[in-house]
Amino acid sequence: MAAADELTRALDGFVERFAAEPRLKAMTAGWDRTIEVRADDLPAPYWLRIEGGVLRRPDEAPGKPDMAISANSDLIRDLFSGRISPTEPYLTGDLRLLASEADVMRLDVITLMVWGE
């Protein structure tokens, strides 16, 4: 089980890498979304907000989520730190995504662009 601060570091690292990739800003322009990230074995959820092509990690819920990601804390840490691709655990059912299909695919591309193939 990953500690809460490990998840925070993984998410902050993801936010930094997102900001460092200029193509992502163009790609997510107009795609404003609130994402809830919930580890099954940790009490509080984490939040990500993409707005105007900028990704940030607010401490509080910025509103109702458009997408919700849930898995155990180890998987979420590995996912946001680029150790694993989201598709494999998604297809095994270990990673659960509540979102429209179009949003799921866009999130998949974002992770690909942040971490590469």
Binding site: L91, T92, G93, R96
Partner: peptide, 14 residues
């Protein structure tokens, strides 16, 4: 039990 857009693939795999 396992809500997933990958449906039949996830259920049969597990």
């Amino acid at each position: 039990t396992l809500p997933s857009a990958a449906g039949i693939r996830v259920w049969t795999l597990r």
